[in-house]
Design a protein around this nucleic acid. Structure first.
Lengths: 152, 152
DNA sequence: TATTGTTATACTCTATAACTATA
DNA sequence: TATAGTTATAGAGTATAACAATA
């Protein structure tokens, strides 16, 4: 419940902050779509590539992309046809297949990250101290929410 | 493109904050996709609806969704067929058509917003003072970036 | 000449249901 | 029985090129 003496409540200040965050999300989404287009990736393909920093079972990928398992089959089919990923059967559970990036896939993922993992220019207007504070707040917000999933 | 040659120096604290922000983007993207699915909207349709807080020319919509004009034609066709929007010719420029929400469209947009415009639960872990600070920093970051566009 | 919106085409995404092979 | 992945299908998204109307 209350972890401190201060009021922990989603008040008007939070609504304000969240509206601003949504604007930032919008900017980042545009960056993501433009980057994907420049690399000849459909948005869903680009999103999948970003998820694959480590090998992932098909169904985990479906969960992260908030889509049905059957979509992932076709999605991975096409990435595999382009030589960006391979399917690797699991040792533990013979129903499961892990999706693994090839060298080409890793390279393309890196180029995607160059576009989306760089902070927006506006970030430079914060002092180093403010940036540290910001990081602290974000860590607090994200704490034990279901997984730091980077989609964009 | 914003990946121009003038690289402003953003320190490791900014990179850290940005990584955390991207995790938050990912969570919000999932919320958005699930909300759209629950309201029987394809992600692109849900995104368009959110843009239409005020009437918008077709090409402006295409810009905000980072897609081609021709996509918007079909997208709006389907929303119009569902009675969610109407096309209204512009007075100033007879080539232009504005997209306007109907009452049903406005109502559905409100329901979308109920899902995505509410801060994540983790927000409650920030004190009111911290929430105000956060809003201030975000305003600074967004200042004179190209438009507060809320996609998700 | 350039721009707005449309059409036509080809490919990809997405949800649903039915199927298989494992568990 | 339940789950992971596939297939088949239908409807929607997306990029490209070509086009008519307007600027």
């Amino acid at each position: 419940m209350e972890t401190g003496t201060e009021t922990l409540e989603v008040g008007p200040a939070a609504a304000d902050s969240w509206a601003l965050l949504r604007s930032l999300f919008g900017l980042q989404r545009r960056r993501f779509l433009i980057a994907a287009s420049e690399l000849d990736l459909h948005p869903a393909q680009a999103g999948a590539l970003l998820q694959l920093g480590a090998p992932l079972p098909m169904n985990e990928l479906a969960y992260r992309l908030a889509c049905d398992n059957s979509n992932v089959t076709g999605l991975i089919d096409r990435l595999e046809a382009r030589g960006l990923v391979v399917r690797r059967p699991s040792f533990d559970d013979r129903r499961v297949k892990h999706v693994v990036l090839t060298d080409a896939g890793r390279e393309l993922r890196e180029r995607m990250l160059e576009h989306v993992a760089r902070p927006t220019p506006g970030f430079a207007r914060l002092t180093a101290a403010a940036q540290l504070q910001l990081a602290g707040m974000l860590r607090r917000i994200l704490d034990d929410d279901p997984g730091g999933i980077d989609i964009t």
